[in-house]
Amino acid sequence: MAEMPVIDPQRCDGCGLCVGVCHCNALALVNDIITIIETVECDWCTDCEAVCLTGAISCPFEIILQEP
């Protein structure tokens, strides 16, 4: 399962800006709420998070230490 951005449907106002900026078509508006379409193409560019004014999308990073 590919790791994908996280949606908070309560915060989504259905503006659709994130759909327009997603270059891998991983986002779609379903009944005016953003829905994730799982894809390995998502390269975590975080543009969807950057354009969202309501904070409905987040692209969290896991921070790990490389094994020596």
Binding site: E49, A50, S58, C59, P60, F61, E62, I63, I64, L65
Partner: peptide, 20 residues
Amino acid sequence: ILFEHIGGEMGRGPRLTQQE
């Protein structure tokens, strides 16, 4: 911030967005 939020050996550490 990165140093203080490294995931531990026992599992995942807190995940952070660029906004956070």
